[in-house]
C-alpha cells in the first residue's frame, strides 16, 4: 500500500506536464490531418503526397462517378428501344437544352426560366420554414421545460404530426382564401413537428451537471436560456431543423402542383399536362439537387453552430 504513494512520488517530476504536452501535440495534428486532398497552402516537398492525393481521389471521387455513369447508361439503354415511352438522358438534354442554358428568361405569366421557378418555390419554403423554426423552437422549449405543457401538448402533437402535408391544403385554402399563404402554411405545418420534438428532447436531455453549474452561478432565466439551454440543446435542435427542411422541400412540390402559379411544383404539373416528359425529368433533377443543397446548408450551419457542444 505504501508503494502506491511512493510510486507517485518517484515518477512525479517526470510526469509533470506529460499529459498536457501529449494533448496539445496530438490535437492539432488530428484536426488538420483528415482530408489530405483539401489541404491549402504550398504543397510540402513530399513525394508521397501526390500519390496519396490520387489514391484519395480514387477512393472518394471514383465510386460515385462510376455508379452515376452506369445509371445513365442503363437509363439510356432502357429508353432507347422502339416505342419507349420515357425519354432517355440524351433526349432529355436535347429536348430541354433551351431551359438549361436560359434559366432566367421571363416571358411573363408562368412562362419563366427554371431558376425563377425554383426561386419562387424556395421563397415559399423560406417563409414557411422560417415560421416553423421560430414557432417550433419556441414550442419545443416550452414542452421541454414544462412537464405540464408536455403532458397537455404531446398527445396533440403526436396526432397532428402524422397528418400528411397535402391533407392540410384544403383547410388552409379555406382559411386563407388565397393560394400563396396556403402553400406557406403547408410548409410550416409540415416542417414544424420534427423541430418541436427534437428541441424538446434536447431541452430534456440537458445534463444535470450544466443545470448545477447554472444554479451555483445563479444564472437568471434569460442567462440560462442563452448560455446553457440553447447551446446544450443545439445539436438536437439542428437535427430537427434538418429533418424539417427536408420535409418542407418535399411538401412544396406537392402543394404547388395543386395551387398553381410560378413554382417548380406547378412547372412539373404543367409539363405533364403538355406531355413534355423531358421537362419533368429536368425539373426532378433540379428538385433533387436543390433539396440536397438545402440539407447540406442546414447541416453545415448546424455543424458550425454546434461545434464543440457534443464533446464532454
Amino acid at each position: 500500500m505504501m508503494s502506491a504513494i511512493l510510486d507517485r512520488n518517484m515518477t512525479f517530476g517526470a510526469g509533470r506536464e506529460r499529459p498536457a504536452a501529449a494533448e496539445t501535440s496530438t490535437a492539432p495534428v488530428a484536426r488538420s490531418a483528415p482530408p489530405p486532398a483539401r489541404s491549402g497552402g504550398a504543397p510540402p516537398p513530399d513525394p508521397g503526397l501526390w500519390g496519396r492525393r490520387m489514391r484519395h481521389a480514387a477512393t472518394v471521387v471514383l465510386p460515385p462517378v462510376i455508379v452515376t455513369a452506369i445509371f445513365l447508361f442503363l437509363w439510356e439503354m432502357m429508353t432507347s428501344s422502339q416505342g419507349a415511352v420515357l425519354p432517355g438522358p440524351s433526349q432529355v438534354i436535347s429536348d430541354t437544352w433551351e431551359l438549361i442554358v436560359n434559366p432566367f428568361y421571363d416571358y411573363g405569366g408562368n412562362d419563366v426560366g427554371m431558376a425563377w421557378q425554383l426561386l419562387a418555390s424556395l421563397e415559399r419554403v423560406a417563409y414557411g420554414y422560417a415560421l416553423a423554426v421560430v414557432a417550433g423552437i419556441g414550442l419545443g422549449v416550452l414542452v421541454g421545460q414544462s412537464t405540464w405543457a408536455m403532458r397537455g401538448l404531446d398527445p396533440l402533437f403526436q396526432v397532428l404530426r402524422t397528418v400528411p402535408p397535402l391533407a392540410w391544403l384544403p383547410i388552409s385554402l379555406a382559411a386563407f382564401q388565397a393560394s400563396n399563404p396556403s402553400a406557406i402554411f403547408v410548409i410550416f405545418i409540415t416542417a414544424i413537428w420534427p423541430i418541436i420534438i427534437n428541441t424538446s428532447v434536447g431541452i430534456r436531455n440537458i445534463s444535470q451537471d450544466y443545470v448545477n453549474v447554472a444554479r451555483v452561478l445563479r444564472l437568471n432565466g434569460f442567462e440560462y436560456f442563452t448560455k446553457i439551454m440553447l447551446p446544450a440543446a443545439a445539436p438536437y435542435v439542428f437535427s430537427g431543423l434538418r429533418i424539417g427542411i427536408g420535409l418542407a422541400w418535399l411538401a412544396i412540390v406537392a402543394a404547388e402542383m395543386l395551387i398553381g402559379g410560378v413554382g417548380i411544383g406547378f412547372f412539373i404539373w404543367d409539363a405533364w399536362n403538355a406531355s413534355m416528359l423531358s421537362d419533368i425529368v429536368l425539373a426532378l433533377v433540379y428538385v433533387g439537387l436543390v433539396g440536397f443543397f438545402l440539407d447540406r446548408l442546414v447541416a453545415i450551419v448546424g455543424n458550425w453552430v454546434t461545434r464543440g457542444t457534443q464533446a464532454g
Binding site: D209, N212, V216, K227, P231, T309
Partner: peptide, 19 residues
C-alpha cells in the same frame, strides 16, 4: 438555502460548458 457564488463547487467531472 439555495446555491450561491459564496459556495462554489468543483464538480467531479469538471462540468465545463463544452461550447
Amino acid at each position: 438555502s439555495k446555491p450561491g457564488p459564496d459556495r462554489s463547487v468543483v464538480f467531479q467531472n469538471h462540468s465545463l460548458l463544452p461550447w
